[in-house]
C-alpha cells in the first residue's frame, strides 16, 4: 500500500538527515540544515553551532550582571561603530535583572552620547548630552549613510538574539521545548563571532550561510580592556556580547522565569487537588447505586 512505502520514505529521510550532520557535539547532531537556511544543492556545508553554557538558560536562569556589563563594553567599543541598538534605553541599564548599573553609572554612560534634539524656541535643532530616558543613538544619521559606507545596512542589535537561529532538524526540534532549549540565537551569534577561521579572508565565516559575510572579523584578542580580570580573548568577548544581546532582546527573561515557576507550582498543586476531588466524586459511582441509578426505576 502506498502509505507503507511512504512511511519507509519518511523514515529513510529522517535517517538521512541525522547521518548528514557532521559534528562531534552530541547536542548539535541531527540537523543538516544551514544556520538560516541557505538552500539548494550548491549551498556549502555549514557547521552546526555548538551549545554553550549560559547563566540565563534553564528554568532558574538569570543574567550575570558582570557579564552583561562586559558585553555592554564590547558593544560600546566595537559593535556600536556600525550597529544600532535602538530599542534599548539608558534607563534599562539600571535593571536589577539586567546589567544592574547604579543610576550614576547609567547616567554617566548616557551623558557620553550626543543626542540630537529640538527644535528649540528659535526653531533650531541642537545636540545635548544623553539622559536616562534616551535610547542608544546610532553612529549613522540614516540607513543610506550606512549603506553607502558598507554596501549593506548593519542590522539593529536590539532583537538580534531572537532574530537569529539555526536548524535543529528532526527529531531534536521535538525535544527542544521539553529540555527548554531557547538559546539557539545566542549560540549562533557566539559561533559566528568565533567562526572567522580563514586567515586569508576576514569575510569568511565557518557558520554563516554561504560563508561570505559582509561583516569582517570584528573581534581580536585584547581589543577591549576588561577591568574585572576576565580574559581579554575573542572567545570571552564573543560570550559576553552574546549574553548582552540576549538581555537586550529579552530584558524580562528573569522576571518571566521567576513568575513562571510560581505559576507552574500553583497549577500543579491545583491540578493535584482537582484530581483528588474528581476521584472522590467519581468514587460514589462505585459505592453501590449512583444518584443516577437511584433516579431510575429498577429494570
Amino acid at each position: 500500500m502506498s502509505h507503507c512505502s511512504l512511511f519507509g520514505r519518511a523514515l529513510g529521510l529522517a535517517i538521512l538527515l541525522a547521518s548528514a550532520a557532521s559534528t562531534g557535539s552530541a547536542f548539535a547532531a541531527g540537523a543538516s540544515e544551514t544556520p538560516s537556511g541557505a538552500q539548494g544543492p550548491h549551498a556549502l556545508a555549514i557547521d552546526i553551532p555548538a551549545r554553550q553554557v549560559w547563566s540565563f538558560a534553564g528554568p532558574f536562569g538569570k543574567y550575570d550582571p558582570a557579564q552583561l556589563q562586559r558585553g555592554l563594553k564590547v558593544y560600546r567599543e566595537v559593535c556600536s561603530n556600525c550597529h544600532s541598538l535602538k530599542m534599548v534605553a539608558f534607563r534599562d541599564l539600571m535593571s536589577p535583572d539586567g546589567p544592574n548599573l547604579t543610576e550614576a553609572e547609567a547616567r554617566a554612560i548616557a551623558e557620553a552620547y550626543k543626542i540630537k534634539d529640538g527644535p528649540n524656541d528659535a526653531g533650531e535643532m541642537f545636540e545635548r548630552p544623553g539622559r536616562l530616558s534616551d535610547y542608544f543613538p546610532w553612529a549613522f544619521p540614516n540607513e543610506q549613510t550606512a549603506r553607502a559606507a558598507f554596501g549593506a545596512v548593519p542590522p539593529d542589535m536590539s532583537l538580534l538574539a531572537k532574530a537569529r537561529t539555526y536548524e535543529r532538524g528532526f527529531p531534536l526540534f521535538l525535544l527542544d521545548p521539553f529540555i527548554q532549549y531557547q538559546e539557539r540565537g545566542v549560540d549562533y551569534i557566539y559561533a559566528l563571532l568565533t567562526g572567522y577561521t580563514n586567515d586569508k579572508d576576514p569575510n569568511w565565516d565557518e557558520y554563516f550561510p554561504g560563508h561570505k559575510i559582509a561583516m569582517p572579523n570584528p573581534l581580536s584578542d585584547g581589543a577591549v580592556d576588561y577591568a574585572d580580570g576576565a580574559p581579554k580573548t575573542v572567545q570571552q568577548y564573543a560570550k559576553d556580547i552574546s549574553a548582552f544581546l540576549m538581555w537586550a532582546a529579552e530584558p524580562k527573561l528573569v522576571e518571566r522565569k521567576r513568575i513562571g515557576f510560581r505559576v507552574l507550582v500553583y497549577l500543579a498543586v491545583f491540578a493535584a487537588l482537582l484530581y483528588l476531588v474528581k476521584r472522590k466524586i467519581w468514587a460514589r459511582l462505585h459505592n453501590g447505586a449512583s444518584e443516577a441509578h437511584r433516579a431510575q426505576p429498577p429494570a
Binding site: 531572537k162 521545548p177 531557547q182 515557576f261 497549577l267 482537582l274
Partner: peptide, 29 residues
Amino acid sequence: GFALACFLIFYGWFVFYVPNYLGDADNYI
C-alpha cells in the same frame, strides 16, 4: 476542570520557559 488545569500547565510551560519555540525567528526582524 482537572483536564483544563493539566492543559494550563502545558500552556504555562511554553509561555514562561520556551515562549519563542513555536514562533519564527524571522518575525523578530
